[in-house]
Design a protein around this nucleic acid. Structure first.
Lengths: 336, 336
DNA sequence: TGCCACTGTCGAAGCGCTTCGATACAGCCA
DNA sequence: TGGCTGTATCGAAGCGCTTCGACAGTGGCA
């Protein structure tokens, strides 16, 4: 394996010159640069990451802590990850993968051991044990999600409050006055993962503003769970004409359940779903939906953490605005 | 940040002694060990990963190359990843995440730059451009999947041929003689990803053995795609009484499609599905299924790559035997 | 008592890179 | 011609660790 000294010898310059040619931190003559480039290519030289990290105290790695829980929607999760990896590579960084269950220990191992220059932490909860750890660290980090006590820590997320409002606004505009919310599984709420609560918050606020009557039910993603939730909502709101679904797994089951109950979508019941566009489009009835821009959130998180790494300021909390895509699952309620 | 020299000073020993205490490569007296441990704890010492990598030429990192394609079943993918990360941590290694689209370049960047000691590469295709690169590398690697020209490279995968056979064996045993296969999307076959072809191979071989008549159709995971596939299969095999589904996304759609055609499962049509157990159990009719033991494959891959890293031999190709879980979607065909 | 083997520890070299300060040289102006 | 500025390059130190060889001390055996 060639070293920088080999390259220097081959090109007839000092090792430091090669280093400067590589980093661009000092001017290099045209001729030297050419010889160095040639030598690098013919020797197949690649700098040793460890040596570089040692000398420069920069690892060019960002750590990504991913939850691997089965009550999360996995494809969305992977979109976050893709956004993070792609953006990181764009900043010439690699990504070290940590899982949620390593917790604060994993974070400090990677940070204190100088394996990573920066951290992106997903799926933060309202009261998250990792946040104190993050705060003691000297390394920049960005949270995906909104923690209650994030304080000065930088966070990015979809504006779930606005998403909840947007769903109701759309339905109210069409004339709906009785709207149910099919939520996430109970475990998600009891973990106090911020996004689920925030969605309900926006949903409720907008309903009040529009004078609509609403009901909310968590929902497991099994047929039985969906049926239970729908029955409970109908019992509470007999005149229900619209549903908002914040549960990617449950959406197809819901459609099937309603159809087996003889309720047509959108004629009898309108549906707005929180889900990615491709899921919405593949449904039996293509769903009007609000997507979580997961890849964008991931790449934004990396951009911000890079800003901090370079000493630039980053905002405390960034909430991306939701966008609603109209499809075939929403219509004005049929007069009765 | 404390260094090994700080620890040594604090404990009243030489830095090398601390190093040996940490690595266990030379005997250390009980008293020295205790003082060193104390010093490490009070100083919050953590070895610098880069320095360690430089001195020992070991990074304690394995690179994982993950495909992020949307025609793959993402939850399964993440199970592989989970298996890999968990096993790697068990071997005191971290995981560097690479995406498929970095290709051979990504592999050689990470390997030549000494960022990773070993590689796990997923989703290998019959003729994979990364394989020649892998072969020139001095680092151990393990493939997940079966490549045509893997040669002496180590590979792990589910035995998809056996899985195809197992599905047919089960149906034949029940008395089915006309069986259709609902396959992966066409793009998967045209990429020549081994697993899909191998499944068909086993399916076909077992059918011949049992004297069953069969038909095979690729299938997009849209309702239209599923309907098309089912119609084509029925046209080719009017007496069809059973379906094998090798397509996790399509399974629920298939169930719905059959029910809307008035065909009952399992009374009119039996179904065997390749999918994870939790997906199978959540279906309207719980599916008899063969699961891909993704997490186990992932952790096996890591175990093998670690063996190679320590100079132990690893087998060329490991195929895990499939297991079929009987649920409610298969029964003997009703006599006509 | 002398020798040997073993255990526990130390010091120093070296891993491959970055970076600081020094230096050589060219070109310019006075 | 002397002195100055600026550009391009070099040499050496040092980043924090591992590892090799050396060596002091201890105990056992002849």
């Amino acid at each position: 394996m060639a070293t920088i000294a080999d390259v220097a010898r081959h090109a007839g310059v000092a090792p430091s010159t090669v280093s400067y040619a590589l980093s661009g931190k000092r001017p290099i003559s045209e001729s030297a640069r050419r010889r160095i480039d040639d030598s690098i290519r013919t020797l197949g030289y690649r700098p040793h990451a460890g040596a570089r990290a040692l000398a420069s105290s920069k690892s060019n790695v960002v750590a990504l802590m991913l939850p691997l829980r089965d009550d999360m929607h996995v494809p969305t999760l992977l979109q976050f990850a893709t956004g993070v990896v792609t953006a990181a590579r764009g900043h010439d960084h690699d990504v070290l993968l940590l899982t949620h269950d390593e917790g604060g220990d994993g974070i400090s191992r990677v940070a204190t051991g100088s394996m990573a220059d920066a951290l992106v932490v997903m799926d933060v909860e309202r009261e998250d044990a990792r946040i104190p750890v993050l705060r003691t660290l000297d390394r920049p980090c960005v949270l995906i999600g909104v923690a209650g006590d994030a304080g000065e820590l930088t966070s990015v997320d979809l504006d779930f409050v606005a998403a909840g409002e947007l769903a109701v606004d759309h339905l109210a505009e069409l004339g709906h006055r009785h709207v149910g919310l099919v939520g996430q599984p109970p475990s998600v709420y009891s973990r106090r993962t911020g996004f689920a609560d925030r969605f309900i918050e926006g949903f409720t606020a907008a309903s009040q503003r529009h004078g609509a009557r609403v009901a909310v039910r968590p929902c497991e993603f099994t047929y039985a769970g969906v049926a239970t939730a729908v029955e409970a909502l109908l019992a509470e709101l007999p005149e229900l004409t619209a549903l908002v679904v914040h549960n990617e797994h449950a959406a197809p089951m819901l459609l099937e359940t309603l159809s087996s109950m003889g309720r047509k979508v959108p004629d009898d019941i309108s549906i707005v779903s929180m889900c990615t566009d491709d899921v919405a489009e593949r449904m039996r009835v293509p769903l009007t939906s609000i997507a979580i821009p997961a890849a964008e959130i991931g790449s934004r998180a990396v951009d911000m953490v890079m800003n901090k790494l370079h000493g630039r300021e980053a905002p405390g909390l960034t909430l991306l605005p939701p966008r609603l895509a109209r499809r075939d699952s929403t219509a004005a309620p049929t007069g009765r």
